[in-house]
Design a protein around this nucleic acid. Structure first.
Length: 199
DNA sequence: CTCGCGATCTGCT
DNA sequence: GCAGATCGCGAGG
């Protein structure tokens, strides 16, 4: 197990980072219990496009961490219910982040089932930005933390690297309010992997 | 202060 | 397939 180094998230190319995160492992250790999963689906967000909460550099208390250097958690509440987890990227005061939209469970299956109130492991368990955070015990109270051993949330190197041919690119989900920017091909997922929010 | 709405998910039909 | 849940954000007055 190797931590993804902080420098990985310092790149200004958030789209490339979103692609490269596929196959890496998101880990959450809460109260000594470890849960983790392979990242199977991501989306990139950047302040220069309308889907981003910090569009045009809009800086508020909620979006503050989007402007921070890469490698921190940006977590916000969606529809009053769902806690959506992003990793911040970049290093030059531009707001950008990668939304983790789905994972394939690896460790702590029992704990995930408990948190999700499910009885069997199926794709619904962690395929979706709101469901995976629930399974991992991630909530808005962790927003702003650095991804490392101390915070209890971090990302480890890939079990497997994915070639471009094994990655599907598409428009981002649920951002029609972003008008023309909703067309950007900034969503990525692993081809032929069932742990994806939707095809 | 008010108000409209969202980077979603679930249960019911 | 569709409506309801549920609440904080952020724009506007």
């Amino acid at each position: 197990m190797t931590f993804v180094p902080r420098e990985f998230f310092m790149s200004d190319d958030v789209v490339s980072i979103a692609r490269q995160l596929l196959g890496k492992v998101l880990v959450a250790r809460m109260g000594g219990v470890r849960t983790s999963g392979i990242i199977t689906e991501t989306e990139a967000y950047h302040q220069d496009e309308k889907a981003c909460h910090a569009y045009k550099g809009r800086r508020t208390s909620r979006t503050e961490f989007l402007f921070h250097p890469g490698g921190k958690a940006y977590i916000y509440l969606c529809y009053g219910i769902h806690h959506l987890f992003n990793v911040t990227t970049g290093n030059c005061n531009e707001a950008a982040a990668v939304l983790i939209r789905a994972i394939q469970p690896v460790e702590g299956l029992k704990q995930m089932l408990l948190r999700r109130n499910h009885s069997k492991v199926e794709t619904k368990l962690t395929s979706g930005p709101g469901t995976l955070t629930q399974a991992l015990g991630i909530s808005v109270k962790y927003t702003g933390v650095t991804l490392n051993n101390e915070s209890g949330i971090w990302i480890e190197e890939s079990a497997q690297e994915y070639q471009p041919a094994e990655i599907v690119t598409s428009r981002r989900i649920g951002v029609s309010y972003a008008r023309e920017d909703a067309l950007l091909p900034w969503r990525f997922y692993i081809k032929n992997n069932k742990w994806v929010s939707k095809l």
